[in-house]
């Protein structure tokens, strides 16, 4: 892995960007956990809200995917 300082920066940046994926995981867990808490309180209303749940998870996850994309771009494309 010998290389110049720019490459080092690239790799460090990619690793830092990958933290964003973990943050997105927290977000997704938050959405799912709150859904479950609500669903256990009122199970009859839960079935109608699964679509909203998935949309929420998708939005939370999209931002993590952006972070992952930045990591990939740093690793391979820059």
């Amino acid at each position: 892995m010998e290389g110049d300082i720019a490459q080092l920066g690239q790799f460090v940046g990619a690793g830092l960007a990958a933290i964003g994926s973990g943050a997105a995981a927290i977000g997704v867990g938050h959405v799912a956990g709150n859904f479950l808490a609500g669903a256990l309180r009122n199970p009859s209303a839960a079935a109608g809200q699964t679509a909203t749940l998935f949309i929420g998870i998708a939005f939370a996850e999209a931002l993590g995917i952006f972070a992952f994309l930045v990591a990939l771009l740093l690793m391979f494309a820059v």
Partner: peptide, 10 residues
């Protein structure tokens, strides 16, 4: 679009 591509790629 990036959500779908990113998920599959990742």
């Amino acid at each position: 679009s990036i959500r779908l591509a990113g998920n599959m790629m990742a």
